[in-house]
Design a binder for these strands. Structure first.
Length: 645
RNA sequence: GCCGAUGUAGCUCAGCUGGUAGAGCAACUGAUUCGUAAUCAGUAGGUCAGCGGUUCAAGUCCGCUCAUCGGCUCCA
């Protein structure tokens, strides 16, 4: 009998008869403790089942529970078991589509006439538990593709047949546990009893293969863990995320409101939200001025001809609002600010000495979004971009992009974001401009990223029609990522609008244009900020920094004096002098997350001080109003790196 | 836009199988003048998202529309 050598990566090596299973080899080569933790193995780097029989010399690496790979395998198996349960409960006429593991769990798509209801969840979960209890092994088999097609055709599994028809390999693998068999690459948990902790989460529609021309399937989402505690933690995190939901907090903190009467996707900023936004805008404008930008203002509508010239009608028309006719001329709401900035550029002649020109604007644009896409502040129909356009010479492109990246990261950091994923998107299918232009600008983006020392991923074909772009997705405190910043090179618009600058040689040359937004849109960014800080904004951007609370009416006059003094010093202070108990006032101030409460009783009135209660509940020793002003100033300065009040 | 769920007072939510709306908080009035997360009492407030239908009778059943939520798609 032939012998083979099996070794554990970074571990022992042994000699075994050919055909031994990975599980048997592990029994000899690793500790019992590790073996019991092992879900599957990497054989020469490829994930396979424990039951795989080894035909030649192999290096094995155990995939353990709770490792990302281990969880993925568990969840993938959970998807199979869920499909089995669904088939058992709702009959063989339910067709199965695909059922992968995803970041936080798994899903399986089904084609079934009747909708699944949340009440079905309990039945499915119960059925799953029964399957788990039978300890059915996951058995792998292989067959040629054409045989597999025949197999699934006979069972009416048309989606599986479609998948198989697109496959290029000759044989495919199947996994069977009990009465359920599914097309699957694997690997899987050894048997169903490994699935101890799982929960179905929700049901949602999804198109077959994500294409809206295809039939809508029902997707059941669930999650699974090895340890009950992990599921609890997961559910707790979900709960935390719900608590931070900017739509909920926006209402509670009275920041903004969205009303049917006004229209979906249109934001009404309430005074507190408006103050928050103003502070962010002021900071933004100031920071841009310091970095060599000039501020512009442009209108909300323009003649349709402008949008024809810019190419927006052709490339972006389906996102634009229908034209309105004024004096027999058609006008359209702007979906972007760029053509206006170009028009301003063209209002004068420009020398090469003037470049780069950096113009910024908080420009409010309107874009048609499908109703199903709207979501609080994060996806709206009217929003204000923190837009800028840089007009430069080709030799300045790389430096300009570098400078934008630097400013970008600096501003994000001020808002507490220092983790991000960077993507470089290259030429899409639908595009304008020459290949040479695309190459030149893509290279400039790459070099600037490298110079800034930013790791990035390439997103092939995800560029805008007019040029390649860099997208920065920021990560919030819960680890969720949000697309905000975008930097896009554009060779197209300067061409279309025939933009020029006079070169050293006295001839006309074409500038390059860079579009960029750092926060993306103020609406979205503020939505993300609300979730980032759970509504408890740092002092410098808190709409209300302090609230004066008196204990009895006897201090009202003194409180008024403190109030006007702080207001004059630039502190955003409010007063609550109602005839209510202190506890009641503190509770209200706490719920609306005011950073400082200034408590004034007889003691403070006599000493000319205030007692400061922080949002955390901590009390500071009594201080004079002037001392409080200084404290607010220095803390705000820390937040933004400069004096804000 | 598509699939599913939801829409009752400013907010959070009750209202079983159809019999012409209810609570808590907020608001308002009065009392209470109080030291670190809700003082007590009273008053007022709703074309039950909108439109249409079934019925003697609709918040409740049916249809359409609008909006919201979870996804798909899309994306600043």
């Amino acid at each position: 009998m032939t012998e083979i050598s099996v070794s554990i990566r970074d571990g022992e090596t042994g000699t075994f008869p050919q055909g031994i299973t990975a599980a048997e080899a592990l029994k000899e080569l690793v500790s019992n403790k590790l073996r019991k933790q092992t879900v599957a193995v990497l054989r020469d780097g490829v994930p396979v089942d424990l039951s795989v029989s080894l035909s030649g010399d192999s290096v094995l690496e155990p995939v353990v529970m709770n490792s990302p790979a281990g969880l993925e395998i568990l969840r993938h198996s959970a998807a199979h078991i869920m499909a089995q349960a669904v088939k058992r409960l709702f009959g063989p006429e339910v067709k199965v589509a695909i059922g992968p593991a995803i970041d936080d769990g798994f899903y399986y798509d089904f084609d079934r006439e009747e909708p699944f209801t949340p009440e079905d969840f309990e039945r499915i979960e119960k059925q799953m538990a029964e399957i788990v209890a039978t300890r059915r092994p996951f058995v792998r088999t292989e067959m040629p593709v054409d045989e597999a097609i025949k197999f699934f055709s006979e069972r009416g599994e048309t989606y599986k047949v479609e998948l198989l028809q697109d496959m290029e390999t000759e044989t495919v693998s199947f996994y069977q546990q009990g009465d359920f068999i599914d097309l699957c690459r694997g690997p899987h948990i050894p048997d169903t009893s490994w699935l101890k902790v799982f929960k179905l989460l929700r049901v949602a529609g999804s198109y077959w293969r994500g294409d809206e021309k295809n039939p809508m399937l029902q997707r059941l989402y669930g999650t699974a863990f090895f340890d009950k505690k992990d599921l609890k933690k997961y559910l707790y995190r979900q709960e935390e995320a719900r608590k931070r939901d900017h739509r909920k907090l926006g209402k509670e903190l009275r920041l903004f409101t969205i009303q049917d009467q006004i229209g979906p996707g249109l934001i009404l900023w309430q005074p507190r939200g408006a103050m928050l936004r103003r502070l962010i805008e002021d900071y933004w404008k100031d920071e841009h001025y310091r970095n060599g930008y000039e501020l512009l203002y442009t209108p909300h509508i323009a003649r349709q001809d402008l949008w024809r010239t810019s190419g927006h009608l052709d490339f972006y028309g389906e996102n634009m609002y229908a034209p309105m006719e004024i004096d027999e001329i058609k006008y359209q709401l702007k979906p972007m600010n760029c053509p206006f900035h170009i028009a301003i550029y063209k209002s004068n002649k420009h020398s090469y000495r003037e470049l780069p020109i950096r113009w910024c604007e908080l420009g409010t644009v309107y874009r048609y979004e499908r109703t199903g896409a709207l979501h609080g502040l994060l996806r709206v129909r009217g929003f204000t971009q923190d837009d800028a356009h840089i007009f430069c010479r080709p030799d300045q492109l790389e430096d300009e992009i570098f400078n934008i990246l630097a400013l970008n990261l600096h501003i994000l950091k001020t808002f507490g974001f220092d983790q991000y994923d960077v993507y470089l998107s290259t030429r899409p299918e639908k595009y304008v401009g020459s290949d040479e232009h695309w190459q030149l600008s893509t290279d400039a983006l790459k070099r600037a990223l490298e110079k800034k020392g930013l790791g990035y991923e390439i997103d092939p074909g995800e560029g805008v029609f007019y040029g390649p772009k860099i997208d920065i997705k920021i990560k919030d405190q819960l680890g969720r990522s949000w697309q905000c910043s975008t930097i896009q090179v554009d060779f197209n618009l300067p061409e279309r609008f025939d933009m020029k600058f006079t070169g050293e040689d006295g001839a006309g040359h074409r500038p390059i244009m860079i579009h960029r937004a750092l926060m993306g849109s103020l609406e979205r960014f503020i939505g993300v900020l609300i979730e980032q800080y759970a509504g408890a904004f740092p002092l410098w951007m808190a709409p209300e920094q302090a609230r004066i609370l008196n204990i009895t009416g006897d201090q009202a006059q003194y409180c008024e004096a403190v109030y006007s003094r702080l207001r004059k010093a630039g502190v955003r202070v409010e007063k609550d002098l109602r005839n209510e108990q202190l506890n009641y006032k503190i509770r209200e101030a706490q719920l609306i997350k005011v950073p400082y409460m200034l408590i004034v009783g007889e003691r403070e009135k006599e000493n000319g001080t205030v007692t400061v209660r922080k949002r955390s509940g901590e009390n500071l020793p009594p201080m004079t109003p002037q001392e409080f002003v200084e404290m607010v100033r220095s803390e705000s300065e820390e937040g933004t790196g400069r004096r804000m009040t």
